[in-house]
Design a protein around this nucleic acid. Structure first.
Lengths: 278, 278
DNA sequence: TGCAACAATACCCACAGGGTATCGGCGTTG
DNA sequence: CAACGCCGATACCCTGTGGGTATTGTTGCA
C-alpha cells in the first residue's frame, strides 16, 4: 500500500523508489504483484509518463484512508502503552531536509516522545489538522483559520513556474498581468478557497486539477499551464521559475487546533521558531 | 494484527494457531515481536490461561476495526476491477466445516464471484449486516429484524453448558427452573436485547460479559457461570452439555438487508437452503 | 512427587523481498 | 536518420523474515 501510494503520488517509479529509500526494480515488481493480486492494472506505463487507471484512482483514495487508519491505531496503542506521540504534518513531498533536522532536534530534546512526520498532498493546507490526522502542521498560509492557532515562521517570495522553453521564462521578473492569458492549474473542488485563490493568483482560468507537487510540475510540463511556487526549491531542468513582483510572499506557518492543550505542541513550536530564524 | 486478534479471541496460543492454520511456536514469536514493537505486553501468560492486558484490550478493538477496514478496501477495489464479491458473515469461530463446504459449492457454481467468509463475535447476531460489513449472514435467531429479511434454515435443540464436575451435569435433561440459582454470563451492553435475553434464558442474574465462544467456555470453566448452547457441537472434556426441555430450539437463519437487490444473495440463499435440508 | 498442559526456546529451511546489472522501447537530437 | 538517453521491465543473486519440528521450562494438580 505504501509503495503504491508513493508511485501514485510521484507518477514515476524511480522517484517513488528513492522516496521509499529503495531501488526501482523491487518497487516495479511489488506493484506488478499488487496488480496481479487485484486482477487489474493500476497504472498505464508509457515512456512519456505513468498515469493512474480508474482502478488505481479508486485504490489511491482507499489506500490513503487505510494507511491513515493504521497510523492512528499506532498512535492510540502507543498512548495506551504510555508512549507520547506527536504527529507533525508537512505539505507536499517531504524531501525538505529542514523538517528532518527539526525532528531530529526535537527527538534529542525529548527522548521519550515518538515524533512522526506525515506528508500531505496540496489539497489541504492544514494537513488534516481538523480531522485529527496530525497534532501540528508546518505549512503555508493562507487558509481558513477558524478554530486554529497560527504562528508565523518565515516568508518566501513567490515565482511562476513555466516550461523552460516558454518565451516568458527568459524574463528575470514578471507581473501577474503578464500571465493573464494563461491557463492555471486548479486544486480539486472542496479545497480551501483562500488557498486555492492564492496559488492561482486570483485567476479562475481553470486548467487541470492537481493534488501533489509532482502533478503540478507535470501539469506545467505537459499541458502548458502555469502555476505559482515559492522560490528557492530545485526544479527539473525542463522547468523554470521567474519571480513575481506583485504577489504577496508566501508565509510559512505552524498551525495547531485552538483548544489543544498538548504541551508537546508548545515545545515543538518553540524549537521550530528558533530553527526557522536562522 | 490477524494473529493478535486470533490469540485475543481464543485466549489460547495453541487454539489460535490451529485457527490460523499454523503451528504454535511461530505464533508465540510473532506476538512477542509485536509486543516488542509496541513496547508493552499485550497478554499476561500464566499456565492457568492467557488474558489481555489493558494495552491488549485497546489494541483488540483497534485491530478489529483496522482489519475490517482493510477487508472493505479489498471489496471496493475488487468491485472497481470488475470482480463481484459476496461477503458471508458467520457467528463464532468459523470451525464449522459446513460453511466451508457451502462456500466451496457456491464457488463451483459461480466461478467469477469472490466469496469471503467473515467470522464475527457473539455480540452481534447480524454479523455487521447493517453496518455493511457483510452481504448476508448465516446466524441464529432471535434478533431485531427491522429492515432485514430472514429465511429459516434449520432448528437445533438447546442445552446448558456446565462444568463436567457440576452435580447437574450428570442429569440427562434439565429445565430452566433447575438453574434458577445460577449466575449466567451476559453479553456486553449494547447487544441486541432479544438475543441477549434468549441466550440467558430470560434470567438477569448477571455473570461476566463475554464476546466470543471461547470466552463463554472459559466463563463456565473458571467462574462457574452457566450458559446455553445449541446441541451437537464438541466441547472440551472439562465441560458438559445437558439438554433443556423447556427452551425454544435455536433457529439457524440466513439474513440480509431488506432492500439489497444483489442477485448473488438470492443464489447463495438457494444453495444454503438445499445444503441445510440434508 | 510425578504428570499433564502450555507457552517459550532452539534450531532448521524456504522463499519473499531486498539488491545490482542489463535489456527494450520510445522519444529526442545533432 | 542514427545515436543517445530516459525509464520501466527482466534476470539473477543473496539475505533475513517467517514458516516448520523437537524440546525445554514452569506451574498447577493428582
Amino acid at each position: 500500500m505504501r509503495y503504491f501510494v508513493a508511485v501514485a503520488e510521484e507518477l514515476h517509479f524511480g522517484r517513488a523508489a528513492t522516496r521509499l529509500h529503495m531501488s526501482q526494480p523491487p518497487l516495479s515488481r511489488a506493484i506488478k504483484q499488487l496488480e496481479a493480486d487485484i486482477g487489474a492494472l493500476l497504472f498505464t506505463r508509457s515512456p512519456v509518463g505513468v498515469t493512474l487507471t480508474p482502478v488505481g484512482t479508486v485504490l489511491l483514495d482507499e489506500a490513503r484512508a487505510l494507511l491513515d487508519h493504521a497510523d492512528r491505531v499506532r498512535v492510540r496503542v502507543s498512548a495506551a502503552a504510555g508512549v507520547a506521540t506527536l504527529t507533525v504534518g508537512i505539505l507536499g513531498d517531504g524531501t525538505d531536509p529542514g523538517v528532518a533536522r527539526l525532528a531530529a532536534a526535537y527527538r534529542r530534546d525529548h527522548p521519550g516522545v515518538d515524533i512522526r512526520i506525515r506528508d500531505t498532498d496540496l489539497t489541504d493546507p492544514t494537513c488534516g489538522l481538523r480531522a485529527g490526522l496530525v497534532d501540528i502542521a508546518l505549512t503555508r498560509a493562507p487558509f481558513d483559520e477558524t478554530a486554529l492557532t497560527v504562528r508565523a515562521l518565515r516568508t518566501d517570495p513567490v515565482g511562476v513556474v513555466l516550461r523552460a522553453d516558454d518565451p516568458l521564462a527568459r524574463r528575470d521578473r514578471l507581473r501577474l498581468a503578464d500571465l493573464s492569458d494563461r491557463r492555471w492549474f486548479q486544486f480539486p473542488q472542496g479545497t480551501d478557497p483562500l488557498w486555492q485563490s492564492y496559488w492561482n493568483g486570483g485567476r479562475p482560468r481553470a486548467g487541470p486539477a492537481v493534488r501533489a507537487v509532482q502533478e503540478c510540475l507535470q501539469a506545467v510540463l505537459w499541458s502548458g499551464t502555469v502555476g505559482l511556487a515559492p522560490l528557492g526549491h530545485d526544479l527539473p531542468a525542463e522547468l523554470a521559475v521567474v519571480p513575481l513582483i506583485d504577489m504577496a510572499p508566501s508565509r510559512v506557518v505552524a498551525v495547531w487546533n485552538e483548544g489543544d492543550t498538548n504541551p508537546l505542541i508548545r515545545s515543538f513550536v518553540e524549537i521550530a521558531i528558533t530553527a526557522y530564524r536562522h
